[in-house]
Computed example of a mutant assay.
Amino acid sequence: MRIIGVTGGIGSGKSTVSKILASFGAHIIDADRLAKEIVEKGQNALNEIVDYFGPSVLNAEGNLDRKKLSHIVFKDKNKLEILNNITHNNVAQKIIERLDSLDDNETAVVDAPIPIKHGFLDVVHEVWVVTADKEVRIKRVMERSGLTYNEVEDRINSQLSDDFYKSISNTVIINNGTVEELLLQVKNYYYL
């Protein structure tokens, strides 16, 4: 099995690269989607979050109240680190389970914005980093999310640096152009 890890910061085009790889027949494992699934009612991660933060992080229906939880963790770095440990460990477990369910002749893509050690770096065979110039990224995110320039810039600045992403990569995809140009790059690396 070939396992490609695709990562990159907000607005870089990481998800577009994964969609292109899916069109080539690769099986996509989306860490963001898994992160949402693991905090659904009845899931282990939600139980761990409630055990640590208390039932006040749940809404009336027993679902995670993300606003309440965000309000707690973004004021306290230690609590944010605990939340990240809970979610990362549970996402890593789900990624490994999904990989184990695939056939040996398949290509899998683990699409993850944060290249965690366990469940990403330790399971992928190659790391593809998608980058783009900061202004290109800001424009993309503003267009799709309605956030202001400063809000997007703050999000970019709070993420891992391009230098870090490049330091863990086997392949760097520069995505400043059109989707067609991106498709050609991805195709070239995929069929090497």
Score class of each variant (00 low, 15 high):
155 R>P: 12
22 A>F: 04
155 R>E: 11
44 N>V: 15
148 T>E: 10
53 F>Q: 06
177 G>T: 03
123 V>C: 05
24 F>M: 11
38 I>K: 09
11 G>W: 04
124 V>A: 11
25 G>K: 09
35 A>Y: 00
162 D>S: 02
111 D>G: 07
153 E>A: 13
13 G>S: 08
155 R>L: 15
137 R>Y: 08
172 V>F: 13
116 I>P: 02
5 G>Y: 03
7 T>M: 05
188 N>T: 14
132 A>F: 00
171 T>F: 14
95 I>P: 02
78 N>D: 15
22 A>I: 08
85 N>F: 00
3 I>Q: 06
97 E>R: 09
8 G>K: 05
116 I>Q: 04
123 V>T: 00
177 G>E: 05
141 V>W: 02
120 F>M: 14
11 G>Y: 09
45 A>I: 10
27 H>G: 07
32 D>P: 05
30 D>G: 01
14 K>D: 04
40 E>S: 13
97 E>A: 10
100 D>F: 08
160 L>D: 14
145 S>A: 06
20 I>W: 10
86 I>D: 10
95 I>G: 02
45 A>E: 05
121 L>F: 06
178 T>E: 00
186 V>Q: 03
72 I>G: 01
149 Y>Q: 14
6 V>D: 04
152 V>P: 00
63 N>D: 12
96 I>Q: 07
86 I>A: 03
132 A>G: 00
83 L>I: 11
102 L>P: 11
136 V>R: 03
99 L>Q: 10
62 G>I: 04
182 L>T: 08
54 G>V: 05
154 D>P: 01
191 Y>E: 14
51 D>F: 12
157 N>C: 06
120 F>C: 13
40 E>F: 06
56 S>L: 10
23 S>T: 13
169 S>I: 03
32 D>N: 06
6 V>Q: 05
45 A>Q: 11
60 A>P: 03
134 K>Q: 15
54 G>S: 04
97 E>V: 10
109 V>N: 07
63 N>M: 01
113 P>F: 00
87 T>Q: 12
82 I>F: 13
122 D>T: 05
112 A>F: 02
106 E>S: 15
150 N>C: 05
60 A>W: 02
182 L>R: 03
161 S>E: 13
186 V>P: 08
175 N>I: 10
61 E>M: 02
71 H>D: 14
150 N>T: 11
172 V>D: 09
85 N>A: 03
79 K>C: 07
22 A>W: 04
170 N>C: 08
76 D>K: 01
61 E>R: 05
22 A>C: 06
180 E>W: 06
169 S>F: 03
83 L>V: 03
179 V>S: 03
130 V>K: 05
30 D>P: 00
178 T>P: 12
179 V>E: 11
59 N>Y: 09
10 I>S: 00
167 S>W: 08
